[in-house]
Nucleic acid binder design. Structure first.
Lengths: 176, 176
DNA sequence: GTCTTTCTACCTATCATATGATAGATAGTC
DNA sequence: GACTATCTATCATATGATAGGTAGAAAGAC
């Protein structure tokens, strides 16, 4: 792994744990064991760096979603939930775009449409698999998973994410 | 409203839109039209300021929850959802503690137990009103609402939060 | 094959600005 | 006289970013 890839890896980790304003080029330089000017060589501005991160993150997510071969709504929910579950169980991290979306008013403008697109990526993938193909139902799953990461981190309870995915599936099968 | 209260108000707005690291004492000073040293007079450190914010925010939330006089699970969900709905429709803001929880790894240690307590405040209030008093079901509602704020901001769609509350209620009444 | 140029990925050094925080002075109130 | 809320002035450090230099690899010319 070359330094450019290392920078991307560390930057992703920083954003997903501390947010966009929670790290500096010098932090990245120290982790990568190069100088901060060399970080700027690979990514002239912080905005450039984060654009690159969101783009590869979105592509990775898209590829994973396309690898789906289940059948039921519950299968689809579990498939999407796996991304969030791994995020928290390995690394204790937020979703990159979920974190950035919460801080959205403090971000460079170019990032904003990319965050909206990422959310639509997940919702639009999920919708055809949902009961009655309800759009709001697909949104609800994504919202629940993004929120589950917040709760899991606040409470130091990584198992919460999987529990929320199951709670959603269960809620569809009990009638109150 | 005195300057101390103004500072608290502006700081809350900053955190709920840009995050803990998304504003400075000078930002607060400019908004309040005093000098940054005077902000430090009221709140010696940023940590002190945010402790005060979380405490009053938690108390406010607790008081609102206790004002509940509904009956059904759906009523309770709507009651809690009102907090989140107002947060996004007025001000376009995150939940203070939801925002901080996402950035938790970049925060002073003293804040962390307070964030966990805030989440439990909502979950523990909600649980007795839920079907079978299921704890995971109460967690799911809170997760959905916290996540709904993220989605609403990412997509610039404030109506999403109320839609998610209704989606949760509907999901309990249809059998797939 | 050797020489020269260009490119890549770093470096040192530096800048302007931002940031959290402190010391000490001052005017008005109790 | 003590207290409150502000001020001016200042600090050390952090931050994003730039200028200009260097060693080694790659590419092209002869």
């Amino acid at each position: 792994m070359n330094n450019k890839e290392k920078i991307l890896g560390f930057a992703e980790e920083y954003i997903r744990t501390k947010g966009y304003h929670g790290f500096s080029f010098r932090d990245l330089a120290m982790r990568t064991e190069i100088k901060s000017a060399s970080v700027h060589y690979h990514f002239p501005t912080k905005e450039d760096l984060v654009v690159a991160l969101i783009d590869t993150y979105s592509k990775r997510t898209s590829l994973f979603l396309e690898s789906y071969n289940g059948e039921t709504e519950a299968d689809a929910v579990r498939h999407l939930a796996k991304i969030f579950d791994l995020s928290i169980t390995e690394g204790g991290q937020m979703c990159l775009c979920g974190m950035l979306a919460s801080e959205i008013d403090g971000l460079p403008e170019v990032l904003k449409p990319k965050l909206a697109a990422f959310m639509d990526l997940m919702i639009d993938w999920l919708q055809p698999h949902m009961a009655n193909q309800q759009h709001s139902r697909a949104e609800a799953v994504v919202a629940t998973l993004e929120g589950a990461l917040i709760l899991a981190r606040a409470k130091g309870d990584p198992a919460l994410v999987k529990r929320m995915a199951n709670a959603f599936i269960d809620a569809a099968n009990i009638s109150t």
